[in-house]
């Protein structure tokens, strides 16, 4: 696989990479890969948010494509909204589309 995204968890020092083919990867797929790579389970016990390392902006829309070689910061938090909002959709399948 020719392309990569660099990521690190917000509290950690070390950076890892997610490899894929193509010029970019969707936020949805990237979160899915990070969850898989770090064996985070079925996603029910946490929320996963991604931020651009330089601008610190959150990638809130799952359908946005992140260009290869971008550096991303991942943040693992408790499930929000009374436990209803968590990362399980990245494991089971349906992207969330943010209406602008």
């Amino acid at each position: 696989m020719s392309s990569a995204i660099f990521y690190r968890f917000r509290s950690q020092k070390n950076t890892s990479r997610i490899f894929f083919d193509g010029t970019g990867i969707t936020v949805f797929d990237l979160k899915k890969e990070i969850i898989n790579e770090n064996k985070l389970g079925d996603g029910s016990g946490f929320e996963l948010r991604l931020y651009n390392n330089d601008t610190e902006e959150e990638y809130a829309d799952d359908t946005v494509v992140i260009p290869r070689s971008t550096s991303v910061v991942a943040r693992r938090s408790p499930p929000s909204r009374g436990g209803r909002s968590n990362a399980s959709r990245y494991v089971t399948g349906k992207p969330r589309i943010v209406k602008t």
């Binding site: 968890f9 917000r10 509290s11 950690q12 985070l40 389970g41 943040r75 693992r76 938090s77």
Partner: peptide
């Protein structure tokens, strides 16, 4: 990592 406190 799932076993950790929410250090992030």
């Amino acid at each position: 990592i799932s076993a950790l406190p929410f250090y992030d």
